[in-house]
Design a binder for these strands. Structure first.
Lengths: 341, 341
DNA sequence: TGCTTCCGAGATAACGTTATCCCACGCTGA
DNA sequence: TCAGCGTGGGATAACGTTATCTCGGAAGCA
């Protein structure tokens, strides 16, 4: 049983049929052995297993999935594959624990690419999708959800369709950051963060404004939401640090902003108290080590898979949004005292 | 056409059959339209497309793959999904450019898990596998490779089977690091790196020893290969920095070692000149900013997919190992001058 | 011994596609 | 007018599994 490809004799993959012939049993019996069906006699089992290893047979997962109607795979559409992605890792772990494989695709913060990735997952008939939504609307998912596809949004909710979601407690996190800086004597605190068209950017900026209003601090010239680019962050930071009454402390709304801010501050990092939203590896070896509001990625990933499995089991359950607590990790940069007025 | 699952009426997915019925054409005609077969009349095309969007039909990729015999997917078994992984990202990009999807799985540096991941990919009949090998032997891949599965090793070669490989120029990289430190006056240079049972650990340690031998520097008590743990790195570092003639410069053999070393050094980082093997995000905002030997992840990933596709096209082509150049990025830590003797 | 019962194992029909045939139709040329 | 031919489109058989149905035979009981 060989096949000529490119001029080379190359063995074709053995199928269940070949195993059956080799073992001298019926096709169905091989299937039973492969699926650990207990209704097969012991001697047949060993004969079939011998044939399997003799032929290096491995069942074709596609055919199995096609026949069974389920794929045993969850899709994960995440923003980025190149950078650290603790949530994806947690999703991977939780899925494996349940015997599910993960098909991860990167959306690169691009709406079209997100759509393409998600639809490709649907064509592969994944059993569910975990998505870190980018697009402003996900109505193209509506028919899929209606057809019973479990979809769980992570970090931000899906707009335009009703899907389960796992979010961090953004407001509480900003509150913790603000309080920490206040406790250390800061009154003039600035915020630079993500674009308010993005859900998290909106929530965090709003929470920050609420904190300032509650504490009676200055608001004007202190809040800078927008697209995260090196130039915008440095412009904002320059504005915040200049003038007659410069800020003495800074809250950054996401990792990208934090890093751009630190890059801009360079050796002067110790001049400004900083609390970053979201932790990242190496935050502890910076000088001063960075105080952060850390999201609980492990819990977020695990919860996402829990919700996904629950919905697969009962598609009629009410749509649920889970808010995961965040944690302030004090490492030094947020505990720098305010200079005496 | 509804199906009762968990007490809820849930629409079954439409199949090509349903589309054909809706459009009043034969099954095969729908298939032709879906695959852009030009031999279909324009009015039939539009009728079929109308039916497709009316029913929200999406072809079942599994059935298509089963029938065609090809899956349009490459598997990527990488060490880690949680941390930054620029090679995986490059593999993803290069694959997408060729119309291939990527099934990424994490091996977590565990031999059993690697094996499980790779075999799972085989069962899914991926068209090829990119692997960052962990296990000491990959003989379990031999039958797959014999059956024509293209396998490309990345970062390290596969032991036990002959597969294409894409490696960084480890020896040249260590040479660059050593030379940079020498140029800045260092004579007592230490090396801490990965276990020599690991290919890269072995190559880099060997290259380091060769550099020392060539320059006539001291070797004893200066080379510390081993498993990367916080305690081992700090023990090694303490040894290197103590005694009558402590090292004035350090080369670290991989990112994990670099980070542990910096963590141990803490505020004293400026006391020791450091060059790290492999770059990582944020290396530039450390103080002093970290000089590194950077691997060219983009080229590595792209080359891996190139090799994979080439082998798929011609399984008889000779097995090839590509060595990708590395680059020294001077940021400060490697340019600290040696203290006067 | 003869009948029922039960259990292990084989034939066969799906699952949703694509590929191979094959036919019906319209056009051309004699 | 009819044979010949090209072309668009339909029936049908795979692809490699699993589920349903059926059947042969061994064991249990009177």
């Amino acid at each position: 049983m060989t096949d000529r490809v490119g001029g080379v004799a190359r063995r074709k993959r053995p199928t269940m049929r070949d195993v059956a012939r080799e073992a001298g049993v019926a096709l169905r019996t091989v299937s039973r052995v492969v699926n650990d069906d207990p209704t097969v006699g012991a001697h047949l089992v060993s004969r079939v297993q011998a044939a399997i290893s003799a032929l290096d047979y491995a069942p074709d997962e596609r055919a199995r999935q096609l026949r069974r109607g389920t794929s045993g795979t969850v899709g994960a559409a995440v923003r980025n594959l190149a950078d650290a992605h603790p949530v994806l890792s947690a999703v991977d772990d939780a899925s494996r624990a349940r015997g599910l494989a993960v098909l991860a695709m990167s959306t690169e913060d691009d709406e079209a690419r997100e759509r393409e990735a998600v639809l490709s997952m649907c064509r592969r008939r994944v059993d569910g999708i975990v998505i870190e939504p980018i697009g402003l609307t996900h109505d193209y998912l509506a028919p899929e959800i209606a057809a019973g596809l479990p979809v769980v949004a992570v970090d931000r909710p899906c707009a335009g369709v009703s899907a389960d979601a796992v979010l961090s407690d953004n407001a509480a996190g900003i509150g913790m950051a603000y309080r920490q800086l206040s406790v250390h004597g800061h009154r003039r605190i600035a915020y630079i963060g993500d674009d308010e068209r993005i859900f998290t950017g909106r929530e965090r900026a709003a929470a920050f404004r609420a904190c300032v209003a509650a504490s009676g601090g200055p608001l004007s010239g202190m809040v800078f939401p927008g697209v995260v680019t090196a130039s915008r962050v440095s412009t904002a930071l320059a504005a915040v640090l200049s003038g007659p009454a410069p800020a003495t402390a800074l809250i950054t709304g996401n990792v990208a902003t934090t890093i751009e801010a630190l890059r801009y501050l360079g050796a002067d990092a110790g001049r400004l108290a900083v609390v970053g939203f979201d932790d990242f590896p190496l935050a502890d070896i910076l000088r001063p080590a960075l105080t952060v509001v850390a999201q609980n990625s492990a819990v977020i990933g695990r919860t996402a898979i829990d919700l996904l499995v629950a919905r697969a089991a009962d598609p009629s359950r009410p749509v649920q949004t889970v808010t995961v607590p965040v944690e302030l990790i004090a490492r030094g940069s947020g505990e720098l005292p305010a200079p005496p007025a």
